[in-house]
Amino acid sequence: MSPLQHTKLFLIEYTHLAKDALHIYVALAILLGACLVFGWKVRQWRPWLLVLAAALAGEVWDWYENDALGRSADYDGHWKDLWNTMLVPTILLLAARYTPIFEKPRAPDAERRDAPSGDEAQVPAPAAGGERDFV
């Protein structure tokens, strides 16, 4: 058994989580870790692609290992693992790109400066003796 499989079994036993739940947590750790380490944003494609690359590499590794042990390929299981791994990072990517929920809130004083005051525009007074000087 490979070190990857030993690590998976250790995590399953130690955390008491299902293998499917570990896929989600590992995907989030890779996504957020890449953003933290490399300074990437969730709305960018790079962290999402890194999660996809890691998920594909893990499934290929599983496939080769099962093949080496003489087990038949479980294509449905591999697709389920990929789907399960990529779902939350995809939702976060789409939410960050196409909704305002990850935008920083504006400072209250910035909103006041940008908002119209409701006052009429101030026009400079005409020169004394001009047309509008009735006094």
Rank of each mutant, 00 (worst) to 15 (best):
E131H: 13
T85V: 06
A115M: 06
A127V: 10
F134C: 03
E131K: 13
L69S: 06
A57D: 00
R113W: 08
A96M: 01
W48A: 07
D109V: 12
K41V: 01
A96T: 00
P124E: 10
E65N: 00
A127I: 05
L93T: 01
R132G: 14
Y14G: 00
W45Q: 06
L31T: 05
L32Q: 03
K19R: 14
E120C: 08
Y75M: 15
A95M: 12
E65C: 00
L49N: 01
H16N: 12
S117C: 07
V135G: 12
S2H: 07
K41Q: 14
R71Q: 13
E59L: 01
C35A: 10
E65T: 00
P105Q: 14
A27R: 04
V26D: 04
H23D: 02
A54Q: 04
T7D: 04
K104I: 05
M86H: 07
L28I: 02
L11I: 06
E103A: 15
R112F: 08
G118C: 09
E103G: 07
D74Y: 09
R71Y: 10
W79C: 02
A96F: 02
L92D: 02
Q44K: 08
P105W: 05
H78Q: 13
L11E: 07
G39N: 01
A53L: 12
D119Y: 13
R113L: 13
Q44F: 11
A107P: 04
R97P: 03
K80A: 14
R112L: 14
Q122A: 12
A121H: 08
L28H: 05
G39E: 05
L87F: 09
R106A: 10
T15P: 03
A34F: 05
D119L: 13
W61I: 06
D114Q: 15
S2N: 09
Q44E: 15
C35D: 11
A21R: 11
Q5Y: 08
W48I: 04
W45C: 04
Q122F: 14
W48S: 05
R112G: 00
D109L: 09
V26E: 04
A127E: 07
C35H: 09
V60E: 07
V135P: 04
A110D: 09
F102C: 08
V51E: 04
A55R: 01
L56T: 03
A128E: 15
R71W: 09
E111Y: 04
D74Q: 06
E131T: 11
R106K: 10
R112W: 06
G130E: 15
V135S: 15
L32N: 05
P47L: 12
T15S: 14
K104T: 10
G58A: 12
A127F: 01
L17H: 09
L50K: 00
P126L: 15
D20Y: 03
A128Q: 11
D133C: 08
A95W: 05
L93Y: 11
R132F: 14
A68I: 05
W45F: 10
L28N: 03
L56V: 11
S117Y: 08
K104A: 15
W63L: 13
A54T: 04
R106E: 11
A27E: 01
L4R: 04
R46Y: 06
F134I: 09
S117N: 10
V37F: 06
Y14V: 09
R46S: 11
Y25A: 03
N84C: 15
A115V: 08
A121N: 07
D114A: 15
V37R: 10
H6Q: 14
A57N: 02
D133M: 07
K19N: 06
R71L: 11
D133R: 07
D76I: 09
G58D: 05
L50I: 12
D109R: 12
